[in-house]
């Protein structure tokens, strides 16, 4: 299958100006300014296939938005090669931008003072969408995102969640084969988030739309993306399936027990002495947690042993959450 995005050795450097202190410093700044060259995106390469949904994650300032700006042709890369939808985003601007849709969660692309439907109407003309195309496609989008009642309101009177649904609809007016979403769920409530996820899944299935999504809400990624690209200080530190990230970095399972009788850690260690298990006790709630490798055999054996010896009130098996895994990686780095 054709690649929707190909990025090779992409690099973007910013000049970070620093101001000198004091009045004297301010005058010196007028003549020469101190600056450091900061690489925001540092030699990254990756490919995205048509129809893939990719989560692009990383800490604040990792370079996610900068990458998206280069992929959409807004910023000129310092060096490297970008091919999106078979085109160089900087050449043939008008043709290129007609093949992508973009949502910047932090800035509106609708016209602030006019009704949403007027914005839609203008965009329809801008993207040269025919009436039939518009009617068949947008009727569906409007219904799914449930924005019918918002259409005649000016954008400035919409709530964030209402606006974001309209933004998404606006980015899809020309039904682009590739969608860039930079923090589309920022500040949204659970219901709106769910609605947006459902919707993205649906258009991906229906039109095989490629989606590149940045977010700090990992449940978005879990719900949508099989693949994640993780960025740290401008470098890609992981690119692969979300599942293997979990398998590789997930630190086993936790099994929580509550007992009907008085139990000590010694008892538990004795009972499970034959397997690799570590026990911990939460004094306050009398919960005992077993940390074990994520291995089904081992875990069922462990539970069987405990249940055979002690009267159990409650058992809870927990997987390390993606959030925890990512937090660990951000903290310690991949190595």
């Amino acid at each position: 299958m054709k690649d929707a995005i190909t990025v090779r050795n992409l690099k973007k450097e910013f000049k970070a100006y620093s101001s000198r202190s004091g009045l004297k410093g301010a005058f010196r700044d007028l003549l020469t300014r101190n600056y450091k060259i900061v690489p925001a995106v540092n030699n990254i390469s990756f490919q995205v296939k048509q129809g893939e949904m990719v989560g692009y994650i990383g800490e604040n300032g990792a370079g996610k938005s900068t990458t998206i700006k280069m992929l959409t042709g807004i910023l000129t890369p310092t060096s490297g090669e970008v091919i999106v939808n078979g085109m160089n985003p900087h050449k043939d601007r008008e043709k290129f931008v007609s093949t992508i849709g973009v949502v910047f969660g932090q800035r509106s692309q609708l016209w602030w003072d006019i009704a949403v439907q007027e914005s839609f109407r203008l965009l329809k003309k801008v993207y040269k969408v025919s009436d039939e195309q518009y009617d068949s496609h947008m009727a569906h989008v409007i219904r799914t995102l449930d924005i019918e009642p918002l259409l005649d309101k000016p954008v400035r009177k919409l709530s964030l969640g209402q606006r974001m649904r309209c933004e998404l609809a606006a980015a899809l007016i020309h039904n682009p084969p590739l969608l860039f979403l930079d923090e589309p769920t920022i500040g949204l409530d659970v219901l709106v988030k769910l609605k947006i996820r459902e919707f993205l899944k649906e258009i991906n299935e229906k039109y095989n739309t490629t989606i590149l999504l940045t977010t700090h809400d990992l449940s978005d990624i879990e719900a949508l993306c099989e693949r994640v690209v993780m960025l740290d200080e401008g470098k890609i530190i992981y690119d692969g399936a979300l599942k293997s990230l979990k398998e590789k970095w997930g630190e086993g399972k936790e099994i929580e027990f509550k007992f009907l009788e008085e139990v000590t850690l010694n008892d538990l260690n004795r009972i499970t002495a034959s397997s690799e298990v570590k026990w911990e006790k939460d004094e306050k709630e009398a919960i005992f947690t077993a940390f074990a490798e994520d291995n089904d055999e081992l875990i069922s054996l462990l539970i069987a042993k405990v249940v055979a010896d002690l009267k159990v009130k409650d058992i809870n098996i927990k997987e390390t959450s993606t959030e925890e895994i990512i937090r660990n990686i951000y903290d310690r780095g991949i190595s």
Partner: peptide
Amino acid sequence: AVELIRPY
């Protein structure tokens, strides 16, 4: 940024 991703 938004203006520059429009085909006009």
